[in-house]
Design a protein around this nucleic acid. Structure first.
Length: 825
DNA sequence: GCAAGGTC
């Protein structure tokens, strides 16, 4: 029995199909597909099925000094146990084994991992390696006809990367997290790829912060030939004889404008016509695909997830590839022919069919991993895909068509004119599309024309209008996600499969916010700490040096052990300098974490107002002086708040923005938002200040759309109750005896009435009925124990005697019960 | 609770 091992199930199925001429039978073992035919079995892994880690005695962050990780042993453990088990069961019966993982470095390592799992249970069976760049009949059959050997050096290079990434990443991550006492889900991470990526963003922010704008002026004129007008711009030659449009001196600008405004006519000095060829784009690799999808409005993660779905459904080729050159096996004419008669692409197919030959473009990057992304002959119907999927599918199809289409041709027309007798020149640049070329099948690039009429040298043109515009130089632009991914690729950091995940990781860690991403104070502090003590880990040099070492391993010039040992020594030296500064680094990180959450001074007590998280997951603004100061302000129910740089002049508080996907909006100064509340209905006297100050209780609509019942004397009186967001409110004649307030009715959109009752009673009932697990600090296990002794909701907990209850419930102290009771109040 | 790299 021969066992064939591939990197993923999809590849296993297709290879089995090719080698068996369609005769393979699929069978599932423990959820793992195995394909079997004529004495052969084929199984797909799921990428790496084993991973490197530290032995379990290094697990506890508090027990182990981070520097101990530098020289800690490394173990390999199964991360996909089902697959490992099935693989080893099959390997026992195998007479020979063929490794058919992807044709790149990581594929070689995955292949070697499979080899070791096989050897654990079968010492004798010969193990071969086959390599192919695309799963086509021709390539696969050729590869299997002449199998090769595993490249252990290449796999060792990959292992060196794994070990160095783990040791540096884990040791430094633990060090920073412990120094700032940020444990649990809020740990502070660093790594060879994420940290240089973060530094790109931080460096750009530093440039923006340091940017000092300059004023300049630009002059424009509308010129007319006969009845047609076009715009021309003033220019001059600077001291280096370069053409310049920006005038940096106001007097000089005014002087030029005075001349231009008085001029009735200009004389054409020169006319230059040029045609320019606009070549069709190269085939899609992952990065260029992400870039194109981003111009359609898809973020990098979303673009990859859609591509993954289209790939899994069989409509496009593998979406993770570096390659921009189609393989020889691809017959473009045949693939175009598959789209013949398809109503969505008939324009493009007809156009391509008229060409004499279909010679595809090729990009600079030619690799062995996978073909560039292109459609397969399996074409979906419009109804098979969602809106988004279809938009992306069409992009991939049209990109494929574009790589086969003709170049476009533009005519550029440049006209220079002068004001007679004055040293003042104007220029106009026109462009006109002569040949549409590939744009006809690929409408994603702009083809805007700029019309400038035919004029001749010496011709006089009327000056219809003259304008001067005052402008300022702009700070550099932030990286958008796709430009960040392109930059990472050009610096060699991350891989085609991971770059978009790395960006998501930076969001998850609280390092960046918004789109385009902006760094938080925490991110600034992490990068600063790393720059000072572990410069290598925030530099793209770490990857560059690692790549050199890996190449040396492949060439046999050095070994895995030498490379990892040297790297450990280097990290050891980093820890020597870190040791003394632990407190200082921790303080700086903690200050920055707090700065990210600080809204401004509390109007009650002057302490900082902070963004805080309520026990139910929503956010609010609360005072750092709590519990001495209980001042709070509400925030909208949904989304993640971020503190903006802009402050409110009246209250000196930062504005807050709520990030909630497409419904992201600026909430503004939280105190203004509260004061701007519109009164929908006055209910009665405020229970808190009504008697003394005459405050009234009202249903108020806040600027963020939420509603509450609060005192009209706010902010002098802060009495407030939560209230449903939707529905018209009316007061009834029924009066609550306890609170002397009318019972309310809420009418929702469907016209249904909801007898809400007295707002105070309703709120108290609601508070009491909340589940125990909704209180911060009560887990489901503890809640179960409390339920068992009759404490079922927050109200029960509030009314209980903490000491008695502590005696009744195992493992819960009276102190923590009192904490929870305070929260319940 | 750690990295980066596969894959889903």
């Amino acid at each position: 029995m021969e066992l064939i091992i591939t990197e993923k199930n999809n590849a296993a199925r297709r290879i089995a199909d090719i080698l068996s001429e369609g005769g393979a039978r699929a069978d599932q073992q423990a959820g793992v597909y195995v394909y079997e035919w004529g004495g052969k079995r084929c199984v797909g892994l799921s990428g790496h099925v084993v991973g490197v880690d530290f032995p379990s005695e290094y697990e506890d962050w508090r027990d182990v000094e981070p520097r101990e990780l530098v020289d800690a042993p490394i173990v390999k453990t199964a991360t996909q146990e089902d697959i490992v088990n099935v693989l080893q069961r099959l390997a026992r019966d195998a007479d020979d084994v063929v490794i058919a993982t992807d044709y790149d470095r990581e594929g070689e390592l995955i292949g070697k991992e499979a080899y070791e799992l096989v050897r654990d249970v079968n010492e004798d069976a010969p193990v071969k390696r086959v390599r192919f760049s695309s799963i086509t009949e021709n390539e696969v059959k050729t590869a299997f006809a002449e199998p090769d050997e595993l490249d252990f050096e290449l796999a060792a290079a990959g292992e060196a990367r794994q070990i160095i990434d783990l040791v540096w990443g884990a040791a430094l991550t633990r060090f920073l997290s412990l120094s700032a006492r940020q444990m649990g889900e809020d740990f502070i991470s660093v790594g060879r790829v994420q940290s240089p990526t973060l530094k790109l963003i931080v460096d750009k922010e530093r440039e923006i912060e340091a940017f000092d704008p300059d004023d300049y002026w630009e002059l424009f004129a509308d010129l007319a030939k006969d009845a047609t007008e076009f715009e021309a711009q003033y220019f001059y030659l600077d001291e280096d004889d370069n053409e310049a449009e920006r005038v940096w001196d106001e007097d000089a600008a005014d002087e030029a404008f005075a001349v231009l405004r008085e001029a009735a006519e200009v004389v054409v000095e020169s006319v230059r016509r040029r045609t320019r060829t606009d070549d069709p784009p190269a085939p899609f690799n992952t990065t260029q695909y992400i870039r194109a999808a981003s111009s359609l409005g898809y973020g990098a993660g979303r673009a990859m997830s859609i591509a993954e779905d289209l790939y899994t459904a069989g409509y496009i080729t593998y979406p993770r590839t570096d390659n921009t050159v189609y393989p020889d096996d691809l017959d473009p004419a045949e693939l175009v022919g598959e789209f013949d008669g398809n109503p969505h692409f008939s324009d493009a197919v007809n156009l391509l069919r008229d060409l004499e030959e279909l010679e595809p473009t090729a990009g600079d990057e030619e690799t062995t991993d996978h073909p560039p992304i292109h459609p397969t002959p399996d074409i979906p119907a419009r109804g098979d895909l969602s809106e988004d999927e279809w938009e992306v599918y069409e992009l991939v199809v049209r990109r494929f068509f574009a790589t086969l289409a003709e170049p476009a041709e533009w005519e550029h027309l440049r006209v220079v004119a002068e004001v007679a007798g004055e040293n003042l020149s104007l220029k106009a640049n026109g462009r006109r599309l002569l040949e549409e070329g590939y744009h006809a099948v690929y409408p994603y690039f702009g083809t805007d024309e700029n019309y400038v009429p035919d004029v001749e040298e010496g011709e006089q043109l009327e000056v219809v209008d003259a304008r001067i515009e005052e402008k300022q130089t702009q700070p550099p632009r932030r990286y958008g996600q796709s430009r960040l991914i392109e930059t990472m690729e050009s610096l060699g950091i991350g891989t085609k499969s991971t770059r978009h995940n790395t960006i998501e990781k930076l969001y998850d860690r609280g390092y960046i916010e918004g789109d385009p991403p902006r760094p938080t104070r925490l991110a600034m502090a992490v990068v600063e700490a790393a720059e000072q003590y572990a410069d290598l880990v925030v530099s793209e040099e770490m990857t560059a040096e690692l790549e050199e070492d890996m190449t040396a391993i492949v060439e046999g010039e050095t070994t895995l052990d030498e490379v990892t040992e040297e790297s450990r020594e280097m990290l050891g030296r980093v820890f020597e300098s870190l040791g003394e500064s632990r407190e200082e680094i921790g303080d700086h990180l903690r200050e920055s974490l707090k700065a990210d959450k600080t809204v401004g001074p509390c109007p009650e007590c002057g302490n900082d107002l902070l963004i805080r998280r309520a026990s139910r997951g929503s956010y609010f603004v609360g005072c750092d002086g709590y519990p001495d100061c209980e001042f709070t302000l509400p925030l909208p129910d949904s989304g993640e708040p971020i503190v903006l740089d802009e402050t409110c002049e009246e209250h000196d508080l930062h504005e807050v923005k709520m990030l909630d996907g497409r419904s992201t909006f600026v909430h503004g100064c939280p105190l203004c938002a509260e004061e701007d509340a519109g009164v929908e209905l006055v209910v009665g006297a405020c229970p808190e200040c009504g008697e003394d100050e005459g405050g009234e209780l009202a249903v108020k609509r806040l600027r963020n759309g939420n509603r509450l019942v609060g005192c009209t004397r706010y902010p002098d009186c802060e009495y407030s109750l939560s209230f449903p967001r939707n529905g018209d409110v009316e007061a009834t004649d029924e009066i609550c005896e306890e609170h002397d307030l009318p019972e309310l009715v809420i009418r929702d959109e469907s016209g249904e009435d909801w007898e809400f009752g007295c707002p105070v009673c309703n709120y108290e009932e609601y508070r009491a009925s909340r589940g125990l697990t909704e209180l911060d600090g009560i887990g489901s296990k503890t809640a179960e124990k409390l339920n068992a002794v009759g404490v079922e909701d927050v109200g029960d907990l509030r009314d209980a005697d903490a000491d008695e209850l502590a005696d009744d419930v195992d493992g819960v102290s009276a102190d923590s019960l009192r904490d929870w009771q305070a929260k319940a109040d």
